Amino acid sequence: MKKNEKNTLITGTIMLILFAVWTVLIQTVDVQAVGQNGTDIGFAGLNVWFHKMTGVHMWVYTVTDWLGLVPIFICMIFGVVGLVQLIKRRSLLKVDKDIILLGIYYILVIFGYLIFEMIPINYRPILIEGRMEASYPSSTTLLVMSVMPTLAFQVHRRIRNTKVKYGIYAFTVLFTAFMVVGRTVAGVHWLTDIAGSVLLSSGLYLIYHGAVRLTDKNN
């Protein structure tokens, strides 16, 4: 195993461990009944202070919610790429390894999201359409930060046109930054929910990235 690939995999694993530690801390540090209907929130002092500072901006929530369809569309594009390769090559083993790993990666991201939907760590600071919704980790932030880097990574591997490549790089960075900042200040998540998404998505992506590079070296 080459040093760079090994370091990437190790860093990704460390990020996932930090996410697990962060999840435990959220349930044990400064826990107060300050959430909707008196639900417990960890790091209550920090979360309440930040929420009061930013306020609630439903228009930001609505915009970022709709823009959350962009990474879903990107997932569908790569799904079509894999399906076309499967049909043409008539064997799953002949589909590009990085596309197969990408499919597995997307499944893991969805699995992570579903786990926390079924086992809520905490709830949003406000009601959404009159309902309490799970808030940790921020699902939109997780989706964006998990999928958008894969777009840049695949573009780097598959597109030779420099202008197109750097144009997509710029779009990826700006879109991701807008979505994460927007979701942070919209007031529909606690600050710790955003931090949890950053840790989880970063860990998963780095492991995917390292796995693809390792596969390249072994071919």
Results as ranks from 00 to 15, higher is better:
residue 9 L to F: 08
residue 11 T to E: 14
residue 12 G to F: 09
residue 13 T to M: 14
residue 14 I to Y: 11
residue 16 L to I: 13
residue 18 L to H: 09
residue 25 L to R: 13
residue 29 V to C: 12
residue 31 V to W: 11
residue 33 A to D: 11
residue 34 V to I: 13
residue 36 Q to W: 06
residue 39 T to L: 02
residue 41 I to Y: 07
residue 42 G to S: 02
residue 45 G to M: 06
residue 47 N to Y: 09
residue 47 N to V: 01
residue 48 V to H: 02
residue 50 F to E: 08
residue 52 K to L: 07
residue 53 M to C: 01
residue 56 V to D: 01
residue 58 M to K: 08
residue 58 M to T: 10
residue 61 Y to Q: 06
residue 64 T to P: 05
residue 70 V to C: 01
residue 71 P to C: 00
residue 71 P to A: 01
residue 73 F to D: 00
residue 73 F to C: 01
residue 74 I to S: 03
residue 76 M to Y: 11
residue 77 I to F: 11
residue 83 L to F: 15
residue 85 Q to A: 08
residue 88 K to I: 13
residue 89 R to Y: 14
residue 90 R to Q: 14
residue 90 R to K: 11
residue 95 V to P: 09
residue 95 V to M: 13
residue 96 D to L: 12
residue 97 K to F: 03
residue 102 L to E: 04
residue 102 L to V: 07
residue 102 L to Y: 06
residue 102 L to P: 05
residue 111 F to E: 15
residue 122 N to A: 03
residue 122 N to I: 02
residue 126 I to D: 08
residue 132 M to N: 08
residue 139 S to K: 07
residue 144 V to E: 05
residue 146 S to W: 08
residue 151 L to M: 03
residue 153 F to W: 13
residue 155 V to Y: 11
residue 157 R to W: 03
residue 160 R to G: 15
residue 166 Y to F: 15
residue 166 Y to D: 06
residue 173 V to L: 08
residue 174 L to Q: 03
residue 179 M to S: 01
residue 197 S to M: 12
residue 199 L to A: 12
residue 203 G to V: 07
residue 204 L to A: 02
residue 208 Y to T: 00
residue 210 G to R: 00
